[in-house]
Structure formats: C-alpha cells, structure tokens
Design a protein around this nucleic acid. Structure first.
Length: 799
DNA sequence: ATCCGTACTTAGCATTCCATGA
DNA sequence: TCATGGAATGCTAAGTACGGAT
C-alpha cells in the first residue's frame, strides 16, 4: 500500500466519519438514529407544505425577506421526524413474500400467476429485415447449438445485424425471441487440506466446510484494507458465527467468541502459495487450463436474440464472498451468500427450450417478459435488491440504448439555451421551490453534479445535488463556493469555485439559520420533482442527461481546438487531453497506482540522463571541431546548463546502478547454476565486473575535472555525432511527453467518460479527420461496443 | 403525493493479459 | 529471457429513473 493510496482511503474514511454516528459515537450531536433520521427525512415532510417566500424583486434586499418562516418551520418538522422515519421500511420480510411473483402468466415453474403486467409479448410484426442470414427465429429452430465449428469471428459474421441501419423503433418491446442456456454457477466449495486451519487463541479450529469457506473469504483479504476495517471485521464475524451456528458449530468443540482471537494467517499463506504455484505452473499447461475454462463457458457466452447470436455479458453468477462496500458502508464485510438455481429467475421467449439445470436442482422461475432486457436475475442478500444477467456491451440491445442516450443528449442542444435562461431568471423567483430548482439545475449543468437521490441508513453516506447538506457547501464571499462531499462510490468531490452571484445568494438563503449541519440544502427538492420540471422542456429530459450532454459538448469543443499537425502520438496526446478535460468535469477519479511516485522519479532520471548524454555528444563535437562553437553558439549553449553537481550526481547514480546490477547478475547467475548443478562463478569474476565499473567511474570523474569526454571511437565525425544527438533529442521528447501524460493522468480516470459519456461518434470523426487509426482510441472491446458509431458517421458529423 | 419495486446505466477496483525493456 | 508494469478486461457495487400501488 502506498502512501498516496493510504492517504486517499483515509480521507474518504475521515470524511465518512464526520457524518456517520455509527462509526464513531464520540461526537455529541449524534443520538444515533434520531439525528440521522431527522437529517434525512426532514425534507419529505416539508415538501408537502409549499409555501411562498415573499421576495421583493430588489436585487440586494430581496433575499432577506421572509423565507424565514418557512425555514424555521422546516427545521421543526425535521426534529420530530424520527417518528415518521420509523414507519417506512417494511423491510425484507414483506418484500420477500412479494418477490417471486410472475408478472406475466406464462409457464411459471414455481407458481402460476395472475396475468398482470401488460403482457406485451405481441409478436411485433417487425420483419427481420437487415439480417438476411439466419432468421430461423420461429419456434423450434433446434436450440441452435453453439456448434464448435462455426466458431465466431470475422468473415463468418459478415452478415451481422446493423440495427442502426434499420429505423424501426418499437417502443416497449425489446425482443421477439430470446433463448439462452441459463447461467453459469461457481464451482462448489472445496475444503482446504487438513493441515490448513484457522487458529483460535492458538488452537487449530476444525470448521465444517461451509464455515471454512467463509473464514477463507476473510483470510483471502487479510492483507487488504478491508481486513483492517473494524466495521468489516464486525460484520464478517457476525455472519461467520451465524453460518457456524447453522452448521452446528466447530467440529472440535472450540467456541469462537472473539474476532481478536482468530488467526487467519495460515489460511492466507496457503492461498498465497496456491497463487504462486498457479502462476509458475506454466508451460502451455496454462493454455490447457484456459481452454478447459473456455469450453465450460462456451454454452453461456451467447444467446439467441431475435434469431441472432449475441453475446451475454455477465453469464457467471456472482460467487459467494464477503461484501466489499465502498467508502464507509455499514454492511461492508457481510457474507454475500451463494446463489442456487432455485434463486434464479430466467427470462426467455415463450417457445424457448428451458435451459438445463444443475443436477438435483430446479430453476426458481421462468418468465417470458419481452419488455425487459435481462436474461436472468436473482435477489442478493446484502441489500435485498436484484442482480441481472444481461447482454454484453457489444449487443444490439445495449448498442441501441447507448445510441438513444446520446441522441437524447444531442437533443438537449435545442433546449439548453432556454433552460439556462429560465434558471437564471428563476434564481430570483418568489417561490422557494422554484429557486431551489433553479439553483439545482445550475449546479447540475455547470458542475456536472448527479441528481442525488435519497439514501437509506444502511448504505454509505454519499450525496448528489438534491441530497446535498448544509455542511457540504461552504460560502466564501463574495461569490466563492467550496463543495466538499462524498459522491457516488464515496469519491470525494472537492471544488473551490466561483459561482453566479445570485446562486451564491440563494445558497446563503438555503443555509440560513435555523438550518444547521445535517440539514438538507434543497429541502423542497428531490430528483423526481426536478426531473418532472425538466420534462416540461423536453420529453425524456432528466438530470443525468446534462452530464452526458456537457461531457460530449465539452469533448466536441476541445476537439475543435486541435489542429491537424504533428505525429500521431502528438495528436493522441491532444485527444487524451480533451478526454481528460471531460473526466475532470465529471470528477472521474482513480487511486494512484502503487508504483506511481517511483515510476515518475525513474522517468525523470532517465530523461536527465538522456540530456546528459546529449551534452556529452555536443562536447565531443567541440573537441573534434572547436570552430563549431562560433558557428552555432545556440546549439552548444545548453552545455553550460549542466552544473558540475548535476553531472556528478548523474554519474553517481549510473555507477551505483551498475554496481547493483553486477551483484544482481552474479546472484541470479549463480542461483541458476546451483540449480543446474554447475560450477559457480567465482567471486573474482564479480570483482572483475566491479573493477570495470570503477574504471568507468574514474573516467567520469576525470571528465568532470577536465571537461574532456571520451566517446565510442566509432563516433568520429561531426555528422555521426549530430545524428546521434538528434536521436537523443527525439527520445527525450517522447519520454517527456509520456511522463507529462502519465503525471496528469495519475489521479484522473479517462475510461469512465470514454465509455459512458463521450459520444463515440466524436472519436470516430476525430480519427477520420486526423488520420488516426481508431485502434489508438478504442480498445477491441470498445470498438465492438461502438460499432454502431464507427460504421455510421462521416467526418462532418457533429455532436 | 409517496413509497417501493424494478430495471437499467455508471463506477472504480481487481485481475489478467501482454508488450517492453533491463 | 524473464520480470515488470501498464493497458485491457472482468467484476460487481452504486447510482438514476420510472411506474404502479397505496
């Protein structure tokens, strides 16, 4: 774990703690559930009683007026809200009962059901145009074995379905036929060798396999931050004990009571060793394993959608594990239980054959709902929500959704001016609600905030626009605002920015006493209200569309600034810079890799050494032709830039590295020989190597003294030297560019915006106009995902 | 209106792959 | 040639959105 990384995690945690009574009950203001609930719930009560704020339309004074009543009322409401709090949350039980209900009569295995939902399986008369090939879509169609023969790829798929060349869009229905082979289950648990144990207070514990598995989950994480997190430990241990109880306790009578007494290190070591072995296992044995694995998953990788063969995304059911929540998640460390076929609901077309079930099991339910995109789903036990098996990103369905998303964002272009105009106006509205809407949309538009829906107590405390609280926004007159909060995935959003004057004033109003830390800034607002408002401007417009719009718009603008010159590498750098602007806008972060600081240092040293080499060559030229100095003083000027000290330290570094290398080489070589039973290299030889190095060292120090360089004898003309200098310059250039790129990217994640926010057609156009191979920008899988974009635009297309 | 269930997108970290350079 | 490390992919958590029931 690096320093940087730690820092970051820590800052997350610290941040979380501030607001998290659960984590730390030292602070005074938190009567645990009460204060919390009041925070979170206060708004709902308020929302109902809309109330006017009378506001003079006079610039300066207006704000002072009487919103007060509203506010005080508000916080009062907030206080006794804990009552209202307790009533929601019917909790899992009632949910559970509702659950496996079929929406759609059809042939349910488990229970037949009332026809409910709008039974949309009308065989839309949509002809299978476009895809001339297959279309054996009608019933039986022999379950279309994924024959080992016609193995995918290239020309074989020449007739792939180009949905973007069709223009039929039939609203609700997602497909007409859908067949697949179900899902792949993780392998059953295999017990550890009998000498690998959990130790409790020094004693080996005999665990039944089911419990051992759970202990193993923890052991596997022993060296991670999770294992050090007390919430994680606590949740894990509770669930571990529960499982143990379920299976009748330990086999040798040891009672596990305290986490602190558990020693997982032997188990952990064992896993490490296994991993090592798997790693070096390998000649082509690895390949063999890989092939076996591929064969196993083959049947699940593809499904048949409207007669076409399409890839499934996550066909593998999530294996049991300890839940790794992000940030300060109250449930982190809990056991995520194994999923069985009985837990799984499959979605298929009515005539599809039912996939085989693992021996001795049956599917939970079979549905035929063609208004949805999922192939299978189950309910997970951590937060009682659903997990879905869906198509892969390169599928037509996903592609179509993606396309629609960007088209919707493009449509916002037509409305954005009037929306902006309106929210500027409404910043002065007399209605509190309108003002809040205006400010919220402003923040969403300008700072790319997320909508910010309400969250419950058993999730990490993170916020977005509507759920911002008092303490997340600091006002610094005249118009500077500091945002500091944890957003999605507990990623910190920290920005010190200048905002519109009126926005500043409004934020001040929203924070006005008696509001206090913990209270909602936008007490009248939630995402549905906001979205409803937005839909008055444009059908389908929601808060998230702004992120897509602004991201792609920014990208377009940035790309427009790039001029078509320089090498591909240079143009790529500019593209990445544009990409980075977008990523920063969207606050897409990543933790700095563990080797980062070191890598930067090394890269800097490398550049320094290249510079040094270059200077040496220049000196060599002068030794050869002293007259050159007069001819091109500029060319030689940089010789003076290198101080003696710098030079010496470079020398030192190189020498040290060489010595190091000699020792390593010696070591390694002898290890090998020992292994092969060969004669070892003598110490003398090492000595010889080292002597050579010290000769070099002497040469260098002489160089420093005299200023005379000694260069390879082949470099004996000015021309040759210059050629080499040129090469060095080139290398320096490339290295510097790369380094710069690396540093600037260290905390910014470009991928997320590339995958989700930047209209891929922008990149395609960029490539066409600037003569860049698309492979430079999109990886293989992204090219597949964005095939619709790659194949559909010409270079004049604009977002 | 609010609540709640459902379904879909977006997100960063973990793992694997693969090129590169010591 | 092997180790190393960055890029690519895999995984699944964490968001948004929306509609129907109450």
């Amino acid at each position: 774990m690096t320093v940087e990384r730690k820092k970051k995690t820590q800052s997350k945690k610290t941040n979380g703690k501030i607001k998290k009574p659960l984590d730390d009950n030292s602070s005074d203001d938190d009567d645990i559930p009460l204060s919390r609930s009041s925070k979170r719930e206060s708004k709902s009560t308020l929302k109902s009683n809309k109330r006017r704020i009378k506001v003079e339309d006079d610039e300066e004074e207006e704000d002072e007026v009487d919103s007060d009543t509203t506010l005080s009322q508000m916080s009062e409401n907030g206080k006794n809200d804990s009552k209202s709090k307790s009533k929601p949350k019917p909790k899992s039980k009632s949910k559970q009962s509702k659950r496996l209900k079929t929406e759609d009569n059809s042939k349910t295995i488990v229970k037949p059901e009332s026809p409910k939902k709008k039974q949309v399986e009308k065989i839309s008369t949509k002809k299978e145009n476009g895809n001339t090939s297959n279309t054996n879509s009608e019933s039986n169609s022999n379950s279309n074995d994924e024959d080992g023969i016609a193995d995918d790829d290239e020309d074989e798929e020449a007739e792939e379905y180009k949905w973007w060349e069709d223009n039929d869009d039939n609203g609700e229905i997602q497909w007409t036929t859908l067949r697949h082979n179900g899902v792949m289950f993780p392998p059953p648990y295999v017990s550890l060798p009998s000498h690998i144990k959990l130790y409790y207070n020094g004693q080996a514990v005999d665990l039944p396999p089911t419990a051992e598995e759970v202990a193993g989950f923890f052991a596997a994480l022993l060296h991670t931050d999770h294992a050090k997190n007390t919430v994680f430990q606590k949740n894990f241990f509770t669930d571990f004990k529960e499982v143990l109880k379920e299976v009748g306790g330990t086999l040798n009578g040891i009672k596990l009571e305290k986490f602190e007494y558990c020693d997982f290190s032997k188990m952990h070591e064992y896993f490490e060793i296994q991993r090592e072995q798997r790693k070096k296992l390998s000649p082509q044995e690895k390949k063999q394993l890989r092939l076996e694995k591929e064969e196993q998953e083959e049947p699940f990788k593809f499904c048949e959608l409207d007669g076409r063969r399409e890839q499934v995304g996550n066909f593998r059911v999530e294996p049991p594990d300890l839940f790794r929540g992000r940030g300060a998640h109250p449930k982190t460390g809990k056991l995520k239980r194994r999923v069985y076929p009985e837990d799984i609901v499959l979605n298929l077309d009515r005539n599809a054959p039912i996939p085989a079930v693992p021996e001795g099991h049956k599917w939970g339910e079979i549905k035929h709902d063609n208004t949805v995109q999922w192939l299978a789903m189950w309910r997970e036990n951590i937060s009682n929500s659903f997990k879905y098996v869906r198509l892969a990103a390169n599928s037509s369905l996903k592609g179509q959704s993606d396309f629609k998303k960007f088209e919707k964002a493009r449509e916002l272009k037509k409305y954005i001016d009037s929306i902006r105009k309106d929210y500027r106006t409404n910043l002065k509205s007399k209605l509190m609600l309108e003002r809040q809407k205006a400010v919220a949309i402003y923040l969403i538009d300008v700072f790319a905030l997320r909508a910010g829906g309400e969250k419950s107590d058993d999730e990490a405390d993170t916020v977005g626009c509507c759920s911002l609280r008092y303490e997340h926004v600091t006002l610094k007159p005249p118009n500077t605002v500091i945002f500091d909060f944890l957003g999605k995935d507990s990623i910190r959003f920290y920005q010190e920015v200048e905002v519109d004057k009126q926005v500043f004033k409004n934020l001040a109003i929203f924070k006005r006493a008696p509001k206090k830390p913990g209270d909602q800034l936008f007490d009248r607002l939630d995402p549905p209200i906001l979205n409803k408002h937005l839909q008055n401007y444009m059908p389908g417009l929601t808060a998230k569309v702004f992120r897509t719009y602004n991201a792609s718009k920014t990208m377009q603008d940035q790309l427009d600034l790039i001029v078509n010159k320089g090498s591909v590498a240079e143009k790529m750098l500019r593209y990445n810079a544009a990409n980075r602007t977008v990523a920063i806008l969207c606050n897409h972060q990543r933790s700095v890799g563990k080797g980062h600081a070191e890598a930067v240092r090394k890269a800097n040293e490398k550049i320094e050494e290249l510079e040094w080499q270059k200077i040496r060559l220049k000196r060599a030229i002068l030794q050869l032709e002293p007259k050159e100095m007069k001819k091109r003083p500029k060319f030689f000027a940089e010789i003076g830039d290198l101080t003696k000290e710098d030079e010496e330290s470079i020398h030192k570094r190189i020498i040290e590295r060489e010595i190091e290398r000699c020792h390593r080489k010696f070591q390694r070589e002898n290890d090998k020989r020992k292994f092969d039973n060969e004669e070892l290299i003598k110490e003398e030889e090492l000595k010889e190597w080292l002597d050579k190095v010290s000769e070099t060292e002497k040469k260098y120090s002489l160089e420093v003294e005299t200023g005379e360089v000694e260069i390879k004898s082949t470099l004996n003309t000015v021309e040759k030297l210059e050629k080499n200098i040129e090469k060095l310059e080139q290398r320096i250039q490339t290295s510097s560019i790369q380094l710069k790129d690396k540093e600037e990217n260290s905390q910014v994640s470009l991928g997320t915006s590339k995958i989700n926010y930047i209209d891929p057609r922008l990149s395609v156009v960029f490539c066409k106009k600037f003569d860049i191979p698309i492979e430079k920008i999109f990886t293989k899988s992204l090219r597949e995902k964005f095939r619709w974009a790659i194949e559909s635009v010409d270079e004049n297309w604009r977002f």
